[in-house]
Every structure is written in structure tokens, then in C-alpha cells.
């Protein structure tokens, strides 16, 4: 058996196969629930209700989607240029550290929010600068460097929380002091848990979309990603474009950590991110790297997480069914995308 390119895939194929991938994912979910000894339909229903069943559930899902939108955008921007940034997790923590450093009294209001957001982006961008320069100057594979930076950063955060940044009033828990009220992102509607980080994420998605489609930088990023040789031949500064892409990507990922600290948690702890940086890769891939698609897939992924939490409490099925679901969804989706462009022939 081998693959043969389809010159002009039909619309039915383009829509039908991804839909089939979603159905197959649901099928696997039900199978998993069955193995866990629960009623498959009840489990799916509880996941859906847990994610979207009430105003509270919806807001929780959107809150959870916020960091995923940022990390998803970071990955989508970088992958578009074929810059494989696997280090959104590290850049997220860089942003979170800045939010704490500037938000615990070092800066007074009302400048603290915009200044610390900008500084967070710079920190995230700076963190990706090393790997991208190693790539463009020495040809070091950025997959390795960005991935390993994640562990270095996590250990650095542990050090900070056990040492210089430890909350003296924290009863010995490894967490930072709380942000001053002026450094906190306000809620969008008073009394509801959704904070302005979500709105900022939407704005960021639109901004990235505008950059990609309307600016020379976006044109360069897409050209470099599709065919660096042709881009270089046409006079594009390929390495400079990669560096700019990295700065943008690192900055976006840092906003995820910044908004989690400033909008939701109010302090930094080493469990700030349950792998938002890695999940951002799934979010971006499911969105086919489209910045507006990232918003949709981030909410979908967040919904599965939030819904699974609720379902787990009710049905006793472990929460890691969510991780398995996402992995399955990604695999089926990648397969579906491949099969819209290629068909399997015998021989």
C-alpha cells in the first residue's frame, strides 16, 4: 500500500474527514468509559454538562481556555515559520515570574498592568532568543533546546519559590507572595470569575491573524515557513524573520503565564501550569495553525478538561480520560488532514 496525492481534494473530503475524526474520537471516548466501568453515554453527557451545562461551567471553561489560547497562538505563530518552539511551557513561566516581580509592590498603580504585561512578553521573547540564535548561527535543533529549557525553567521556578521569591507568610508552602490588587487583572463582569485575560487572548488572536495576513512580516513568516530557499532567493532576510517570529512566539507564550498569575491565581506556584505549554501544541495543530481557529480549539480542549473534572467527580472515571481523548483527537485529526490530501492505493 502507498499514498498517492490527490490534485484537487473535494469539499466533501475536506469537511467529511475531520468530522469523521471527531466521531472516531467520540467512539474511543465511549470505549474508554466502558473499560472504566461506566455508562458511555452518561460519561459523555457529564463531560458536556461539566463543560457547558451552566453559566458557571461555561465561565470556568473560558478561564481554562485563556492560557491555552496564548500558548496555542505562540505555537501556531512559530510552527507557521517551521520554527519548532516546544518551549511554550518555559516561556509561560518566564511571564509568570515577571508578573510576580513587578506585581508585588515594585511598581505602583496604574502603570503596573501594562508595564508588567510588556515586560512579561519581553522575558518570554528573550527566553526563545537563545534557541533561535543557536539555530540560525550554528544550526542547533531548536526542538531539543526549547524542550530542555522547559525543565531548566521549571527547576529555576522551584528554586525561586524555595528561596528568593518565597512568601514569608506562606506557612512554608513553596509559593510566591500575592500580587497587590492594582497588579491584578479585573474581572470582565463583577461577581463572575472570568477575567480580562480572556479578552486579551481574543485580541491577541485577532492581532496575530492581522499580522499574518496583512503585514509584510506575516508574509515573510509564511514564505519562510513554506519554502526558505525561495524566500532567501527573493531577498527575504530568512534568519531575521526567524528571530522576529521567535520574539513574537515567546512573547505570546509568556502572556499565558502572566494572565494566569495576574488574572486567576494572584500568586506563582510551581503547579501554575498543568502543561499548558504542551497542550498549546495540540491546540495549534487542531486549529491547523490558524490564529482564529486557535480560539475555537482552545475552548474545545479546555471544555474537555473542565468537563472531565466534573464527570470524574460524578462517575468515578479517572480524569486522565481527558488527556487520552485529546491525544486521540489529535491523532485522528492529523490522519484526517493527511487523507484529505492523499489517498491510499494498493500496490
Amino acid at each position: 500500500m502507498r499514498l498517492e496525492t490527490i490534485p484537487n481534494p473535494s469539499a466533501a473530503r475536506k469537511v467529511g474527514l475531520p468530522a469523521l475524526a471527531l466521531l472516531a474520537t467520540l467512539g474511543v471516548a465511549m470505549l474508554l468509559a466502558l473499560i472504566a466501568g461506566a455508562n458511555p453515554f452518561a460519561v459523555l453527557g457529564q463531560i458536556a454538562r461539566g463543560a457547558l451545562g451552566s453559566k458557571l461551567a461555561i465561565l470556568e471553561t473560558l478561564n481554562r481556555a485563556t492560557p491555552l489560547i496564548f500558548t496555542g497562538l505562540a505555537v501556531a505563530v512559530a510552527f507557521r515559520a517551521k520554527l519548532w518552539n516546544i518551549g511554550a511551557e518555559a516561556q509561560l513561566y518566564a511571564g509568570a515570574i515577571v508578573a510576580v516581580v513587578l506585581g508585588t509592590g515594585a511598581l505602583g498603580s496604574p502603570l503596573v498592568l501594562p508595564v508588567s504585561a510588556g515586560a512579561a512578553m519581553l522575558a518570554g521573547a528573550a527566553l526563545l532568543l537563545g534557541p533561535v540564535l543557536l539555530k540560525t548561527r550554528l544550526g542547533v535543533d531548536e526542538v531539543v533546546t526549547t524542550l530542555l529549557l522547559n525543565f531548566i525553567m521549571l527547576l529555576f521556578v522551584s528554586y525561586l519559590l524555595e528561596g528568593p521569591m518565597k512568601d514569608p507568610m506562606g506557612m512554608g508552602w513553596p509559593k510566591s507572595p500575592a500580587l497587590i490588587p492594582e497588579a491584578r487583572l479585573p474581572r470582565i463582569v463583577e461577581g463572575l470569575r472570568l477575567h480580562w485575560g480572556f479578552a486579551l487572548a481574543i485580541i491577541a488572536a485577532v492581532a496575530v491573524w492581522v499580522i499574518q495576513t496583512r503585514t509584510t512580516l506575516g508574509f515573510e513568516i509564511r514564505a519562510v515557513g513554506q519554502n526558505p530557499e525561495a524566500a532567501r532567493f527573493a531577498g527575504m532576510p530568512v534568519n531575521a524573520v526567524l528571530v522576529k517570529t521567535a520574539l513574537l512566539s515567546g512573547g505570546l507564550a509568556a502572556l499565558a503565564g502572566w494572565s494566569e498569575v495576574a488574572g486567576l491565581k494572584g500568586h506563582l506556584s510551581s503547579d501554575l501550569s498543568p502543561g499548558f505549554g504542551y497542550t498549546g501544541i495540540i491546540v495549534a495543530m487542531l486549529a491547523l495553525l490558524h490564529p482564529l481557529g486557535v480560539v475555537v480549539t482552545a475552548i474545545f480542549v479546555a471544555g474537555i478538561f473542565v468537563g472531565s473534572d466534573a464527570m470524574s467527580r460524578a462517575a468515578g472515571v479517572p480524569t486522565y480520560i481527558a488527556d487520552m481523548l485529546l491525544a486521540t483527537a489529535l491523532l485522528f485529526m492529523v490522519l484526517a488532514i493527511l487523507l484529505t490530501k492523499m489517498r491510499v492505493v494498493r500496490g
Binding site: F219, A223, Q226, N227, E229, A230, A231, F233
Partner: peptide
Amino acid sequence: QGSIADFDLTENAVL
């Protein structure tokens, strides 16, 4: 070198 396969003609024309 001369073109980017998945870009449309407009994008290739202004490379």
C-alpha cells in the same frame, strides 16, 4: 527557488 508551491499567484508575483 522561484516559487512557493502553496502560495497563490498574487503572493508569488510579489515575492
